[in-house]
């Protein structure tokens, strides 16, 4: 039995687990809209409503996606500071994103189908 005192922690853990399953897909989706550097992606994730996701989580994930060829990076000169390492989606990254998005839609539909109560709730009538 889960004590009521643990609920905020439980919520946070569940949120973390859910995010872990979709974070790479979300990063690809954000990069599909516009290339960005690592810190910019952190801010975009925050703006999207995920709350504070640490740079220490996003940067290693970007590195993995780069290793897998899903994103590419290049240095871009910046008028206001040092050159920026900007990430963008690659062709394989686009294909993966499309596939993952379809998979996510099916998954979300299935979960929604289970969670949504039926429209007409049959009541048991007394004989």
């Amino acid at each position: 039995m889960i004590a009521a005192d643990n609920e905020p922690t439980d919520d946070s853990d569940r949120q973390t687990q859910l995010l872990r399953g979709v974070l790479d897909m979300c990063l690809l989706a954000l990069l599909a809209r516009e290339p960005a550097h690592g810190y910019e992606l952190v801010r975009r994730m925050e703006d999207a409503g995920f709350g504070a996701i640490s740079y220490g989580t996003i940067y290693p994930l970007l590195t993995r996606m780069r290793r897998l060829g899903l994103v590419a990076d290049e240095q871009q000169a910046s008028p206001t500071g040092p050159p920026r390492k900007v990430y963008a989606l690659t062709g394989p990254g686009r294909s993966h994103l499309d596939a993952w998005q379809k998979q996510w839609d099916r998954f979300a539909d299935t979960v929604a189908g289970i969670l949504t109560p039926p429209d007409h709730n049959p009541t048991r009538s007394c004989p």
């Binding site: 990069l31 599909a32 290339p35 590195t63 780069r66 290793r67 060829g69 590419a72 990076d73 290049e74 900007v86 963008a88 989606l89 690659t90 062709g91 990254g93 686009r94």
Partner: peptide, 9 residues
Amino acid sequence: LNTTEIKPA
């Protein structure tokens, strides 16, 4: 860490 050219999506 092979840096490749950007190919915008």
